[in-house]
Design a protein around this nucleic acid. Structure first.
Lengths: 176, 176
DNA sequence: CCTAACCTTTACGTCAACGGAAAGGTTCTG
DNA sequence: CAGAACCTTTCCGTTGACGTAAAGGTTAGG
């Protein structure tokens, strides 16, 4: 129970950081973070007395997630907005959940939450699948090329070797 | 040798299509295709007498590849340009290969081709890996949520249930 | 209390990736 | 050979995702 030790009052204090520190850690600019806020992608956990934005660990995680969706998955910020809307809706649902005792409503909120998360995962899986297909195709061509190289290294003569699918002799180009 | 049969002169005629037909098949606009050409991402196989762009099957494949890299993999057109530059360089190499008999140069060209393809695949794999990591994280949160839902459905009371990591009480929010 | 280093909002600038219209030429079909 | 439906190049407009000042207020250290 060291973190409840009265001699260590800062133990569970939720470490709030200012925008530049967060930006540096994530490798983005402060402008980018403010822009995301402008688009409604996140809200800082709090503000200082002088209105400085203050971010907690969850905010940083959320930002990291956004960055991943943008850089790694290649989603637009609008699409990310959709995915995150589901996430923030879940948070709202959680709050609502705790304030109601209506069994039916609670079940509805649960179902809603599950549906949202399912959509989020499905969206990612979909992207993943398409990327996977792309890589397979690229690897096919890779193997195809290696076979070709193998033939050539085996000492095949530089015969014109007209590839049936690659004839492009429709109209002789005059320009360029 | 049926494709040399004089009774079937259209057998290996390389079906050339105009820009709109290609665009429709790929689900892009003609403007997009022309823009890609402007950036040097592709050249039509030929032109008609009246300077209409004419595309063959290889061109369409290349365009499909570009679209995949853009939509599925989320590459910028500049990055795609790099990836394709490798590909067109390979084509140049093939032509060069057939015009030389110098064993050393031929081997150099082969190694170059292999290196280019390797880079291309590696680039895709890298992206794939990062996307995979993202999905795993999302699935983690998915499972986490399902556990949470399970607890709730099991009839846990709507106790405030202060999550240790989620305390955001630094500054009482006044706005929103 | 002063100053450097940070922060705020507001607003205009920029670059990629096209959209869309103008002014004219081409192809196909009847 | 006329007309509709294509196509050409050229050029300006737009949208997303920020960059970059400007004009000020805030915070931490000395």
């Amino acid at each position: 129970m060291s973190h409840l030790d009265p001699a260590d009052p800062a133990a569970d204090e939720p470490r709030l950081r200012r925008i530049q520190e967060v930006a540096a850690e994530l490798g983005v600019t402060t402008r980018t973070i403010r822009y995301y806020e402008e688009l409604g992608l996140l809200e800082p956990a709090g503000r200082s007395g002088g209105d400085y934005r203050l971010y907690d660990a969850d905010d940083v995680e959320r930002l990291r997630f956004i960055k991943g969706l943008r850089d790694d998955a290649g989603f637009s910020l609008a699409e990310i907005g959709q995915l995150l809307e589901d996430e923030t809706a879940r948070e709202r649902n959680r709050a609502r959940f705790r304030t109601t005792t209506d069994i039916a409503e609670r079940r509805a909120l649960i179902d809603d939450a599950r549906a949202r998360v399912d959509r989020q995962i499905e969206s990612l899986r979909d992207k993943m699948g398409r990327l996977g297909t792309m890589i397979e195709e690229a690897e096919d061509r890779h193997r195809h090329l290696l076979v070709h190289i193998g033939e050539l290294e085996a000492g095949v003569e530089p015969v014109p070797h007209e590839h049936p699918r690659a004839r492009r002799t429709a109209v002789p180009r005059t320009d360029r």
